[in-house]
């Protein structure tokens, strides 16, 4: 007998938060639901709500519990959850496709071969697949503007490293568990460094500080090291030579 499906599940986060979880794994419907539910709460401008966010499969709501008691928030969330099937809601509007020049492998991204081997592929085939897969911004988090991207094919469901990679630079494309992360700053990581871009996710000195939005899609097309160096020579806008177009469909 299978236990009843507990999702969507509403739980408390510390003293001043609630978390609505749509699944215990990253699936396309759970991620859509988390994004759409967060967008709807933002749209409704509930009194006492101070901040919201969406993670891979959950929506987080922070509120002032002095103005809005926990019980009231829980009740409102339950009512909103019952309004429709959030798992089948469309992705947010205004999504964009970013095409980002990327050097795979070389000393700029030294763990490509290791990642390819873990996926059971030769490096050329791994690059071909990685560079042709349109991935979606599933969530932005950990560091400012930093996207978790997926899904990649099941062959890339490779574990995180046992030993941390002591430091990867800004713009590093790293891979684990069928996802990419595109780092917004230099950081140690347990993910494998397979590609290097000149794309800056967080541009605090510019009017638009955050480049990406959840739901955007990205394609990391392979370029040579020379091409990336050429792009870096003139990268004042931080785009790293990326093109950006609206997704209309």
């Amino acid at each position: 007998m299978t236990p009843p499906n507990p999702f969507p599940l509403v739980r408390t986060v510390g003293l001043d938060g609630a978390l609505v979880t749509f699944g215990d794994a990253v699936t396309e419907p759970a991620n859509r639901a988390a994004l759409a539910f967060r967008a709807e709460i933002e749209r409704q401008h509930w009194d006492g709500v101070t901040e919201t966010s969406a993670s891979l499969a959950s929506t987080y709501i922070r509120f002032d519990p002095v103005n809005v008691p926990h019980a009231e928030v829980t009740q409102r969330l339950a009512a909103l959850l019952n309004q429709k099937d959030w798992y089948s809601t469309p992705l947010p509007e205004g999504r964009r496709l970013w095409c980002v020049p990327t050097v795979y492998g070389t000393d700029l991204a030294p763990q490509l071969e290791e990642a390819a081997a873990a996926a059971g592929l030769d490096p050329e085939e791994a690059v071909r697949r990685l560079s042709q897969t349109r991935v979606r911004v599933l969530t932005i988090g950990f560091a400012p503007g930093q996207p978790y991207l997926g899904p990649l094919g099941p062959e890339f469901n490779i574990p995180r490293l046992q030993e941390l990679n002591p430091m990867v630079p800004e713009g590093a494309l790293v891979l684990a568990i069928s996802q990419f992360v595109l780092f917004s700053g230099p950081t140690p990581t347990g993910w494998r460094h397979v590609g290097q871009t000149a794309f800056r996710c967080f541009r605090p000195e510019m009017a638009q500080s955050f480049a990406l939005r959840p739901g955007d899609e990205m394609l990391f097309k392979a370029v040579s090291r020379e091409e990336l160096e050429h792009i870096r020579d003139d990268n004042a806008d931080g785009s790293g030579g990326a093109t950006c177009q609206e997704i209309t469909a």
Partner: peptide
């Protein structure tokens, strides 16, 4: 465990099981 929202004040258990209290510049998910 799936990466989830982090808030300041959370007491996070690292791989070795020793706790960290997270402060104002903590990560947003983990």
């Amino acid at each position: 465990i799936l990466s989830e929202v982090i808030t300041p004040g959370d007491i996070q258990m690292t791989g070795t099981g020793s706790p960290f209290i997270l402060l104002p510049e903590c990560q947003t998910t983990g």
